[in-house]
Design a protein around this nucleic acid. Structure first.
Lengths: 342, 342
DNA sequence: ACTCTTTCTCGATGCGTATCGACGAAGCGT
DNA sequence: ACGCTTCGTCGATACGCATCGAGAAAGAGT
C-alpha cells in the first residue's frame, strides 16, 4: 500500500505538501497540485484511515445502532439502513453496524475505542435503555424516534400525529362519518414506541374537529385478530365503512379480510394504508397511502449528525424535528358523488 | 479519553506492559496484571482503534457489501445482516456497511483506506462486476452466493441443488407423480443469481431418479402471474396436485391463489414452501418448508473470513462450501394413505 | 536598494498503540 | 561460584497522517 510519503517522493514534494493538497487547508500552487494529483492517481493512493483518525481525531465513521427485533418489519428497517448508508457516503462518511447484542455497552465500546465519531440510534422506544448512555456520551447522537423524555437528546422522526390527522381529514372529505383505525401489531405497541400514541392522538384531534366518529381496534399479524377488528368496525358503522391501517403488514391482512367479506376498496369501502408506493400500486385496487417518508427521515438524520460533527460541538444538544408525511390518492378511497346537489 | 500511557501511569508500569497485558503476547506476572487491569477498569480505558490499526495493520473490521435491490426480499436480507453482525462481534470484529452506490470502486476504497481487513459480499450474481475486483484485492473476500465462475474465490451459500432434491423427494414420497415448481420472481431470475438454476437442477435430478413429472412455471409477485402458473399446473396434473415454491413472496401469493380455487394445503393439494419457521407456523395450514438456513450461512461466512484473517494468508484462496438445508414437515403436504395395502 | 507583505513549501512533531531488543532477576545444573 | 536459560519488565521505535512554525521566493511599496 502506498503512503503519502510515497506520493510525495513520486511528486518530488514533501509529505506535508501531499497532505495539504488533499485537505486544501493551505494554498498550493497549481503546478505542485497537479504533480501531486498525478502521483496519487498513478499510485492509486488512498490515505490510511487509521493514521488519519489518529492524527485528526476524526474517523469519518458513524455508528448505526439497530435493535434487531424479529417482530418488527425488517423490510422497512432495511430501507432506513440503505438510505442512511447512501447519505453518509455523500457526506464522505461510512457506517458501522452496531447491533444490540451488546446492549448499551456496545455504544460505550465503539465510542470509547473511537471507531465512530457519532451515533444514530434507530427504533428508539419510549423508554430505552440506550437513552442514559446517549445523553452521557461525549459524541453527537441522533435518535430516529421520539422517546418519552427527549430532553437533552437530538431526535428526528416522521410526524405521526400529522399523519393521523391527514388520514382522518381525507376520509372525512370523502364523506365518511365513521372510521375504523386499526392499530399496530401488539409487539410494536408493547415496545412503547410512542409513535403509536402520536398517530392516535392525531386521528382523535382531527375527528374532534370534524365531528367524525373513530373506532380504534387492535391490530396484529394474524388473520383472526384482524377479522374480529374488521367485524367490530363494520358492526358499528352506519353508511360506507372506512379504514385506516398505518402499518404495512396489518394493512396487508386487512385487505384480505375485506376481500373475504366482499368489500372492495374504492367501491364499497375506503382504505388508507401505509405501504411503499411500489407496493401500493401493485394491489388489485391501487391503494391510497400515507407515506411516512422513511428515506427523508434517514437523510435528515445523517445530515443532522454530520452538521453536529462539522461544528465540533461538545456540549449536549437538544432538538426535535418531525418530517411531514405525504398522502397519495390512488383508488382505494370512495370518491364522493361529485355534485353537492344530488 | 484515557490512553494506555495513562493506564501505565496509574498502574505504575510501562506503556508496553499495558499493551502486553491486553494482548497476552508476553508473559506477565499475576501481580502486575492485576494492577493493570484495575487501572483499566478504573479509567474505563478502551484502546484507540485508529492507533491500534496503525500499529498492528489490523482494523478488526469486516466490510459487508450489500446491493440494495428494491425487488429483492429485504426482510431476509436483514436476517443475514443481523446474523453476520452478531457473529462478527463474537469474533471481536465489527461490521462496516458498504453500499453499492459506489459500485466496485467502493470495495477498492475501503480496502485501500484500510478501513477493513476483509470483505463479505452478499447477493452475489452469476456475473457480478464485483468479482474481478474481489479476485484482485489483497485482502480476504468471502462471497455469499456462487457466481458462474467461482475460480479464485471463496464462496459459501445454501445448497439449493440439495434443497430441490429434498423437496421433490418429499412430495414423491407423499405419493405425488406430478409436481409444479414455481420459480422465483423474474427480477431475481434476471439477475442471474444462479441459485435458481441450482435449485431447478436439483429438482430435475430427483424427478429423473424417481420417475416424477415436473412442471416448471414462472413466478412473480403479482396475483395474475401466479394464477396463470397455478392453472397451468392444475391443468396438466392428474391426481392430487403438488407445488414447490422456493421463494417467500411467491409462496405467499401461491397460497392465496390456491385458496381462491378451493384448494387447501394438506387436504387436496400439497405445498412445500420456504418461509421462515415463524411465518410457516402462522399460516392457516402450517406450512411444510425447506429452510435454507440463512443464519448458518451467515455464521459460516464470518467464520471463514475470520479464519482467513487469523492465518494471515496472502495468496488468493479458493473454496466452495454449501450449507445443507433442512426440511420441516408441518401440515401442508398430503399424508399418503398409511397402509400400502389399499 | 531596502523592508514588508503574501504565497507557497518544507521539516519536525505528535497522535496512541504494537513490537523488538535489551536487561535485571531468578532458577537451574555443574 | 560459574555460566545458562527463562521470566518479567522497560525503553525506544515505527506505523501514516495532520498540523504547526519557519523559511524561501516573489512581488509591492518606499
Amino acid at each position: 500500500m502506498p503512503t503519502s510519503k510515497d506520493v510525495a517522493l513520486a511528486a518530488g514534494v514533501a509529505q506535508s505538501t501531499v497532505s495539504y493538497v488533499l485537505s486544501g487547508k493551505r494554498p498550493i500552487s497549481d503546478e505542485t497540485r497537479k504533480k501531486v494529483e498525478a502521483a496519487i492517481e498513478q499510485l492509486t493512493y488512498h490515505p490510511n484511515a487509521g493514521a488519519r483518525a489518529l492524527a485528526s481525531r476524526r474517523t469519518r465513521v458513524i455508528g448505526l445502532v439497530i435493535p434487531f427485533i424479529p417482530e418488527l418489519h425488517m423490510a422497512s428497517l432495511m430501507e432506513f439502513v440503505s438510505c442512511i448508508a447512501s447519505t453518509a457516503r455523500q457526506h464522505d462518511h461510512d457506517i458501522l453496524l452496531v447491533t444490540e447484542d451488546e446492549g448499551a455497552d456496545g455504544l460505550r465500546r465503539v465510542v470509547g475505542q473511537q471507531i465512530c465519531d457519532g451515533l444514530i440510534l434507530m427504533q428508539v422506544a419510549g423508554e430505552d435503555e440506550r437513552l442514559p448512555v446517549a445523553r452521557a456520551l461525549k459524541v453527537p447522537v441522533v435518535l430516529i424516534g421520539i422517546p418519552r423524555d427527549p430532553s437533552g437528546l437530538v431526535c428526528i422522526d416522521a410526524d405521526f400525529e400529522l399523519a393521523g390527522q391527514m388520514a382522518v381529514h381525507d376520509l372525512a372529505a370523502a364523506g365518511h362519518s365513521t372510521i375504523g383505525v386499526i392499530a399496530w401489531q401488539p409487539e410494536v405497541v408493547e415496545r412503547q414506541v410512542n409513535y403509536v400514541d402520536r398517530f392516535v392522538r392525531g386521528t382523535n384531534q382531527a375527528a374532534k374537529e370534524l365531528g367524525v366518529k373513530l373506532i380504534h381496534v387492535v391490530g396484529g399479524t394474524d388473520v383472526g385478530t384482524i377479522s374480529r377488528s374488521v367485524d367490530e368496525v363494520l358492526g358499528r358503522t352506519t353508511g360506507q365503512p372506512a379504514f385506516i391501517a398505518p402499518e404495512g403488514i396489518v394493512q396487508e391482512i386487512l385487505l384480505r379480510a375485506l376481500s373475504a367479506r366482499g368489500l372492495t376498496p374504492g367501491t364499497n369501502v375506503s382504505v388508507i394504508g401505509s405501504a411503499s408506493p411500489a407496493l401500493a400500486e401493485l394491489q388489485p385496487v391501487p391503494l391510497s397511502t400515507i407515506d411516512l417518508r422513511p428515506r427523508e427521515v434517514s437523510r435528515r438524520a445523517v445530515q443532522i449528525i454530520c452538521s453536529l460533527l462539522e461544528s465540533g460541538s461538545e456540549g449536549p444538544h437538544e432538538s426535535l424535528e418531525l418530517v411531514p408525511p405525504t398522502i397519495t390518492h390512488r383508488s382505494s378511497v370512495i370518491r364522493p358523488a361529485k355534485a353537492k346537489a344530488s
